[in-house]
Design a protein around this nucleic acid. Sequence first.
DNA 1: GAGTGGTCTAGACCACACA
DNA 2: GTGTGGTCTAGACCACTCC
Lengths: 258, 258
Amino acid sequence: MKARENMELHPMIKPNLSSSVKNYLYKYIRSLDLGGNTKLPPENELSLNLGVSRVTVRRALDELEKEGIVLRIHGRGTFVNPEALNIQVNLMPGEEFSRLIESCGYKASFEVADVRKLKADAEIARILQLEDEEEIYEIEKIYLADGHPAIISIDRFACSLAGDDLKREAVEGKSTFDILRKFGGCFIVRDKIRIETMNRREMEQETVYGRKMECDSVLVFHGINYNQDNRAVIYDTEFYDTKYIKFSLLRVKNVYED
Amino acid sequence: MKARENMELHPMIKPNLSSSVKNYLYKYIRSLDLGGNTKLPPENELSLNLGVSRVTVRRALDELEKEGIVLRIHGRGTFVNPEALNIQVNLMPGEEFSRLIESCGYKASFEVADVRKLKADAEIARILQLEDEEEIYEIEKIYLADGHPAIISIDRFACSLAGDDLKREAVEGKSTFDILRKFGGCFIVRDKIRIETMNRREMEQETVYGRKMECDSVLVFHGINYNQDNRAVIYDTEFYDTKYIKFSLLRVKNVYED
DNA sequence: GAGTGGTCTAGACCACACA
DNA sequence: GTGTGGTCTAGACCACTCC
């Protein structure tokens, strides 16, 4: 743990007022949670007390509602959602794998299984919009939950983004996001994933360390990651053992029938 | 196809202005799409032309952005996302299974595999907050894509919600949502799903018609469905063959670092 | 009728891109 | 500097719930 040594400058996203209100409310909710009284103050009161407009309070509450933290009932009020605490991992945000494992209640660690440099095949060249024969890095990592293999990830990106001399040591400490942010000056703002399942045999064909997994079927995400300029910069594949990684998702059905 | 016969009254959700604007923009985008010019008019212009405030235009664009239909770049403009057309099935909305299969490019059909009435076990009673020994319906359906088994669903809900005389015929035509809306007067506004995978053997233990599936590993959603009063009314399990059902998900990373 | 959330507006100012 | 999206405000009116 070499914290604070080599403190890096990296692009920050500056928060806005409604995020601050959201954070404030989130902490407020966590503070009162055991009391049993799950009703929040009315929007007008929050607006007055916090010194922001009601619209801003509402935007914060909109977010909390979408995340399932609160429920709003027209004419009655805004309530803390008792279910929200049972959520283990929300699928949406695209979180770091280590944090994800910890959210599931395990101690996280990882190994870099493999760092290879190779020519992009046709499919990857198409997805990442590379020149023919352009070289890419392929980084395979395995993430452990209390020592059990829980996630295998394979990240693929153009060598031109991170320099030609990427060393295994540089990969050990950081996530691929960090590497691209530091060396390539670009950072990921959105991704698009495709979901499928594989059985053990299929997984072992696609990974180096697949045979370490304990499970017989895995959840697979194929992800294309876009940077701030809407360019596809990483193509990754993630294998999850759902015995350890329990994704949850709160979905609000909005059925406006035109 | 007995359309229009027995037209039913069911609760409607009335649209708001921003949904209308959203629909309008959605159609507008689809109309121009092949032109190659992917820039939308500026927000002020839309606001003037449509006769609504800029805030309302922005709310519509917010939604379209979250769905991945458009991209907005500060200082430059709003653009149609060329990727959006490749999306096959968005995971979020919780769509009807038949429509979901059609979105993947197949002809959809389904069979009711089984309608059984039984006493809730401890886990289901807890989830649905039922009395001890209360009876539930369990409806198993299998959905076919071009004749191939693609989804198996098992819906479980209290008999008290739909009357004690639910017949197999009543189930044939309608979704469980429709049944509860018609008989129970309640309808589903949100759900919470947990995601896991199973191999063939595990699936066959949990389903009647599992052995019809062609795949060796399945994607499984366990869902708790809540009605407008925040009561859990359906507990369902859904098995997907990801060879046929290709879920996609666009995720926007919002990393406000407090 | 009082309280509360849901929607919409008009206007202001800021931040970023591009010439 | 001009054009564009990003944020915030104050105020209005409506719809629903509960007394």
